[in-house]
Every structure is written in C-alpha cells, then in structure tokens.
C-alpha cells in the first residue's frame, strides 16, 4: 500500500494534526508499514459474515434524558487552560 504525501497531509488535516516537513517521511513510511501488515485480513474468509461492532451482542440501553447538575464547578474550571470569571476563554470566533 502506497500513501502519497498529499494523502497523508489530508488525513492529518482531518485529524486536526500538523506534521512537520521533516517528519513527513517517517509518518508516511510507518503508515504504509502498518497498512501493508493489515493486508493479511484480505485473506480472511468472511463470506456471509456480519460485522461485529462490540464484544457483546449489541442492544440499545434506554434512559430518560434528564439534566443532572455537576455541582463542583471549581473542579472543572481548575483544569481550564485559560479562563475568565466562571468561563472557559477562547479567542474571538465571530469578527
């Protein structure tokens, strides 16, 4: 499996990640390595088999959509990288 630098940069963009020029080759080669390894599943005989999305037989678990207040606001805000009064601070989004 060959991956082009353009393709890798596109995937990085989708992932919200930046890959530097110097790292481009190593990331690309690693990705190709793993993809080549995973080619083995093409030989697996899965004709007629469904997809398993989880380890257990999947079923929906329903509950009421109730608002529960998390009271310890300080504990949440202490992790904020930047805050102002009781709010998370981000750069201006709407000019």
């Amino acid at each position: 499996m060959q991956v082009s630098n353009e393709e890798l940069l596109h995937i990085a963009k989708l992932s919200n990640l930046k890959i530097s020029e110097e790292q481009l080759d190593s990331y690309r080669l690693n990705l190709e390595d793993i993809l080549n390894f995973t080619e083995v599943i093409k030989n697996a005989n899965v004709d007629g088999l469904g997809e398993t999305i989880g380890a257990n037989d999947s079923f929906n678990v329903f509950r009421k959509d109730e608002v529960k207040e998390f009271k310890d606001k300080e504990a949440l805000l202490q992790n904020a990288p930047e805050k102002e009064r009781n709010m998370f601070k981000i750069p201006k989004v709407i000019q």
């Binding site: 599943i41 093409k42 697996a44 005989n45 899965v46 088999l49 469904g50 997809e51 398993t52």
Partner: peptide, 11 residues
C-alpha cells in the same frame, strides 16, 4: 479496512 476488520471480528 474498517468494515472488513469488523467482519474479521465476527470470524
């Protein structure tokens, strides 16, 4: 890849 992997999971 993904769909095939999920089928392999069934296998």
């Amino acid at each position: 890849y993904y769909k095939k992997a999920q089928q392999v999971r069934t296998l």
